[in-house]
């Protein structure tokens, strides 16, 4: 009952983006996908969602290949949080989050759908924005709205594309704790691409580190994220800092 990815490849006319990426995700786990800019994290998530066709490899979700799912069946299994959204018409935040209920409703949202929507707004602490126009939100607010929509979707799996990028420190922590809690309490399988290796280290059960479109390593955060891997993948020298029972990395300089 999980997500298993094997030998995933993707090319564009300009060249290979991803080759031979493999990993798995069990329910109740948080998997962080890390890697430098342009390494193919967004492409990977799109491939997992079946939004792009892979040139080779398999994405198996609960014993069935992704292309064999109908769009609506997949929408009840996986929620996707894109990096942003460009709407063309004004839409209230409440309505935008209510769209997450779409896979579960036919025409008229039931009382339960409306309540779940309100609850998702509260989970993200954005209930005050409910009647605001989504086009007039800040980047961080919009990011939370999109996460709320994914929560309202009530799916066993969540794929998030850099969910913390435009959030400030406090909201980064809150969102990561929320995702952690979803995995722990509801047994959700959470996959998130993250820029912040310290967040990945702290909140993820598994880390997939990508380097130039290939898997550099896949395993526990302690195994994968260390001075050597950060130097080889990101090209930075880091200092390891410890305190309060946590370990983190402080980037020092670009390595030569």
């Amino acid at each position: 009952m999980s997500l298993a990815v094997q030998g995933l490849c993707f090319s564009r006319p300009s060249g290979r983006i991803l080759s031979d990426v493999g990993f798995d995700l069990e329910p109740g786990q948080v998997l962080a996908v890390a890697g430098p800019n342009g390494v193919g994290k967004t492409t990977l998530i799109r491939l997992l969602m079946g939004l792009l066709p892979p040139c080779a490899g398999h994405v198996n979700l609960r014993g069935k290949e992704i292309p064999h799912y109908s769009r609506s069946a997949l929408a009840r299994l996986v929620a996707y949080v894109p990096q942003g959204m460009t709407g063309i018409f004004p839409m209230k935040v409440f309505d935008l989050v209510l769209l997450g209920r779409r896979p579960h409703l036919a025409w008229r949202p039931s009382r339960r759908d409306l309540e779940r929507t309100a609850q998702a707004l509260f989970q993200l602490g954005i209930e005050g924005l409910a009647e605001r126009d989504a086009q007039r939100l800040s980047g961080g607010q919009l990011q939370k709205v999109l996460i709320a929509r994914a929560l309202a979707q009530d799916t066993p799996f969540l794929f998030l594309d850099e969910p913390t990028t435009s959030l400030d420190l406090r909201h980064q922590l809150e969102v990561m704790e929320l995702l952690r809690g979803l995995a722990r309490d509801k047994g959700a399988g959470v996959l998130a691409s993250l820029h912040d290796v310290n967040m990945a280290r702290r909140f993820a059960d598994k880390v997939l580190l990508l380097d130039q479109g290939r898997t550099y390593g896949f395993g526990s955060p302690d195994e994968i994220l260390n001075e050597t891997s950060l130097r080889e993948v990101y090209g930075v020298e880091v200092a390891r800092l410890s305190g309060c029972g946590l370990t983190g990395f402080l980037p020092l300089r670009a390595s030569v």
Binding site: R46, L51, L74, A79, M91, D95, L99, R102, L105
Partner: peptide
Amino acid sequence: SWDLNLILCGDETAQSLGVS
């Protein structure tokens, strides 16, 4: 109607929420 609402949020979002 719902599918048209979703498509206002972008093709990929609409697809991820079950629209062909």
